[in-house]
Write a protein that binds this DNA or RNA. Structure first.
Lengths: 138, 138
DNA sequence: TATTGTTATACTCTATAACTATA
DNA sequence: TATAGTTATAGAGTATAACAATA
């Protein structure tokens, strides 16, 4: 059992390694860093405050300030005053930003490619395993 | 089917995100950056040349130079002349480095923790799926 | 001449501490 | 006074270009 976990641990490492590398490559293909692509993705769903971005990206607020400033200077997002709280700011994606986010999703072929190698049953099994490991059932 | 892949893609994203965050946290716990921990892990197996490290870490050689220099200044690795080729250098782990690498493995509890949530059958299924997605059979 | 590694440089990511403005 | 965000600063990761030493 320990050996099974050990070997699985190595496979998991290799897979995450390949996943991260592919994400980084895709981001650079569209002219972004991985961190920028990540933030753009978060903002693409809906406007998000700076603080919320820091929470979701698991980093310091001062870091978010800089990444947003860079994306803003590229015209991909803009800051707007927070809805209720005069202190807060929301980051909103621009049309150009939405286009680039979509290009990024297209460029990041890794997940679809790899999942496409699995049988339907294997996909089901993988989905169940990920649910459990993410604490989403059981 | 497309929806299945889409949902699975999100689960995969979430899992990789959690994995990366956990690795980063573990590295910081032992006083390393993720990149430093990664290089130390590579060198822990056996001496590796600078160029080989660049290949394995998927980065430029000049980057490896800097990371190795930092690890060397912490006394965790050392450079030694290459075996056959007088131009090359091998990076060798020191006793202190080996201790820290082991501490890192202990600190990085994420894989074992999460795999421990799975049944034996689910682990088998996950292992098979990863093999296929990593192109290691079929 | 080609290759291994380093140096110089520049940009990005990241965090800490001090600060401004608002609550 | 507490909170949201920014600024200043510093260390680390990263790549490109120019370079040294060796093959």
């Amino acid at each position: 059992m320990v050996d099974q976990v050990g070997s699985l641990g190595q496979q998991m490492w290799d897979f995450v390694y390949a996943y991260d590398a592919a994400y980084d490559r895709a981001a650079r293909e569209v002219g972004l860093s991985a961190a920028q692509a990540c933030l753009l993705k978060a903002v693409a769903e809906r406007p998000v405050t700076m603080g919320e971005l820091a929470s979701r990206l698991l980093c310091d607020a001062s870091n978010v300030t800089q990444i947003v400033t860079r994306l803003e200077s590229k015209g991909l997002v803009r800051r707007q005053p927070g809805a209720r709280d005069g202190r807060s700011k929301e980051v909103v994606i621009t049309p150009d930003g939405a286009v680039l986010d979509e290009r990024m999703r297209v460029a990041f072929t890794f997940p679809v490619e790899r999942l496409g190698l699995l049988s339907s049953d294997a996909r089901d099994a993988l989905g169940s395993a990920l649910d459990v490991m993410l604490g989403r059932d059981g």
